[in-house]
Write a protein that binds this DNA or RNA. Structure first.
Lengths: 194, 194
DNA sequence: ACATTTATGTCAGCCATGTTGACTTTTTTC
DNA sequence: GAAAAAAGTCAACATGGCTGACATAAATGT
């Protein structure tokens, strides 16, 4: 951030030592200004890692999101992706077409319902997605290590609680289902006769 | 999220009960897929609150950021804002002009260096910014309450640790300086003779 | 069988917000 | 008096949102 030199109006130095403990009673509760800003800076860095890699392919943040969720839910429908991302069909269409055209995503017609296009990562897409997961996981792991023993649970609960109440349960279910599928696939790999 | 119906490939139901505890040793450490996704959903909701209000004024996310940091650092220079936001002068110029034109921000020439334009919120800008702080603080407060006793400290440490190491100290100093200025101003208000 | 609905895709155009590059004006500094 | 710094501006472009209108194929309901 190149050490910012904000010349404040209040240059008086230390604030009154025994200053009255908030005479204006902050009717709405304590403002969380530090957390608001930290979340901004942290998130910016968090998404910048994949951004840089993507840029080399001529892709952007939107492509990352698509790759990520297709990786997590192989065989998902286009509609499911629209529901998760909450963007329009047209917006998704653009990035999805690029990803399919350039061989990162495979779009196959559904077996039972042939109107559906089920989305899968190609090996190429899988490799790229692994990079993103790895780099973002590394950042998260390091941050949690610096934050104390049960940080992972606390942070997880905090993030869930930051989500709009009506979205929490669907979101948690979505994550659980993806995790379960990963387990199933890796179990399948360890008994290839399966 | 309207309960997403992802028909997974692995429809076998419950994953092997006594499945081997990860035969592939995850060379890069445990992937933090759940946190990656929770951060995405949480941040999206977090910024959507101000977004909706802004939309009524014909403003967007970029205006929010400018208002927020000018509120935190009254009298800051344009250069300081560019350093914090890390966008180009031209991008900032557009939103700043709109905010000044519509009377949310006051831009005054510096007293000691008259090349500088020092930025202040007008009462109108201050009122709007308070709304954003209030609504985002409320979300944060509620989330912390649901996350256990020392959640605030843990989350704060976590967010700091998520920031690129070279930016941490400047960022923390920035926040500390802003907090200190707030205290100084509110102390000044409680002794108006001052 | 036929009408309707669903899933997907596509064309065209608009908006917000980022970018680069070039250039000007004012003011300070060396 | 030259050089550097702070700010602003014009033009052009990219990304990724959006709306509206429409097309096609396949499933579903009566």
């Amino acid at each position: 951030m190149a050490d910012i030199n904000v010349s404040l109006t209040a240059r008086t130095g230390k604030s009154e030592p025994g200053a009255a403990p908030r005479l204006s009673p902050a009717p709405e509760g304590e403002p969380m200004l530090d957390l608001i800003e930290l979340l901004f800076f942290a998130y910016r860095n968090f998404v910048s890692d994949p951004d840089e890699i993507l840029h080399g392919f001529g892709f952007g943040r939107a492509h990352h999101r698509v790759l990520h969720f297709v990786n997590r839910h192989p065989g998902m429908r286009v509609t499911d992706l629209l529901d998760i991302l909450r963007i329009t069909k047209q917006s998704l269409g653009r990035v999805l077409r690029e990803l399919v055209d350039q061989g990162f995503i495979d779009s196959r017609a559904g077996a039972s319902d042939r109107r559906q296009r089920l989305l899968y990562l190609t090996p190429k897409g899988e490799a790229l997605t692994q990079e993103f997961v790895a780099i973002q996981s590394r950042r998260l792991r390091r941050a949690l290590e610096e934050s104390g023993g049960d940080a992972r649970d606390v942070v997880r609960r905090f993030l869930v609680a930051m989500i709009d109440p009506e979205d929490r349960s669907p979101t948690e279910k979505l994550i659980a289902r993806a995790d379960q599928a990963v387990e199933a696939r890796s179990a399948a790999r360890s008994r290839p006769a399966g």
